[in-house]
Computed example of a mutant assay.
Amino acid sequence: MEMIADILLVAGALGAGFYCFILARRLTRFTDLENGVGGAVAVLSAQVDDLSKTLEQAQNSAGDSSKSLGELTERAEDVARRLELLVASMHDLPQSAAAAPQPQAPPQENADPVFVRHARN
């Protein structure tokens, strides 16, 4: 009976050893930097670095665009104020006789056509 227990104990130890060997090989392949999860983590880490640099550049560009847009808005508001003042000052001007259209006399039928032509011009 002891001999059977010893044989089963040795078989269990050999099975556990074989299982550990297989597990070690799988773990080595799993953490391989080129094909396994280690490679995927390295690639993702590089992508995160690239994305963070791109995000920083986009934020800087957006900040510059915002400043430029703010300056243009201020200029547009200044021009709008000036235009409002010009329009208001145009309403204050009196209507002059020179600005009013003059009615034209109809051409005389008995007049010389050359004279009428020169009078129209």
Rank of each mutant, 00 (worst) to 15 (best):
Glu2Leu: 05
Glu2His: 09
Met3Thr: 08
Ala5Phe: 14
Ala5Tyr: 03
Ala5Gln: 15
Asp6Leu: 09
Ile7Met: 10
Leu8Asp: 14
Leu8Cys: 12
Leu9Trp: 03
Ala11Phe: 11
Ala11Pro: 00
Ala11Asp: 14
Ala13Pro: 02
Gly15Ile: 15
Ala16Thr: 03
Ala16Val: 02
Gly17Cys: 04
Phe18Val: 14
Phe21Val: 06
Phe21Gly: 07
Ile22Phe: 13
Arg25Glu: 03
Arg26Ser: 05
Leu27Ser: 06
Arg29Ile: 01
Arg29Gln: 05
Asp32Asn: 15
Val37Tyr: 10
Gly39Gln: 14
Val41Ser: 09
Ala42His: 11
Leu44Ala: 15
Ala46Lys: 08
Asp49Ser: 14
Leu51Met: 10
Ser52Lys: 13
Lys53Ser: 13
Lys53Asn: 11
Thr54Asn: 07
Thr54Glu: 12
Leu55Ile: 05
Glu56Cys: 01
Gln57Met: 02
Ala58Val: 03
Gln59Tyr: 00
Gln59Cys: 00
Gln59Ala: 05
Ser61Glu: 11
Ser61Gly: 06
Gly63Asn: 12
Gly63Met: 01
Gly63Phe: 02
Asp64Thr: 07
Ser66His: 08
Leu69Tyr: 11
Thr73Leu: 06
Glu74Thr: 08
Arg75His: 10
Arg75Ser: 06
Ala76Arg: 05
Glu77Ile: 09
Val79Pro: 00
Val79Ile: 14
Arg81Asn: 15
Arg82Trp: 07
Leu83Val: 08
Leu85Cys: 11
Leu85Phe: 02
Leu85Gln: 14
Leu86Asp: 14
Val87Phe: 07
Val87Ala: 11
Asp92Thr: 14
Ser96Leu: 11
Ser96Ala: 03
Ala97Arg: 09
Ala99Phe: 09
Pro101Cys: 02
Pro101Asp: 02
Gln102Thr: 14
Gln102Leu: 13
Pro103Phe: 12
Ala105Val: 06
Pro106His: 08
Ala111Asn: 11
Ala111Arg: 07
Asp112Lys: 03
Pro113Leu: 10
Pro113Lys: 06
Val114His: 04
Phe115Glu: 09
Arg117Ala: 15
Arg117Val: 06
Arg117Thr: 05
Arg117Pro: 01
Ala119Glu: 04
Ala119Thr: 01
Arg120Trp: 00
Asn121Ile: 01
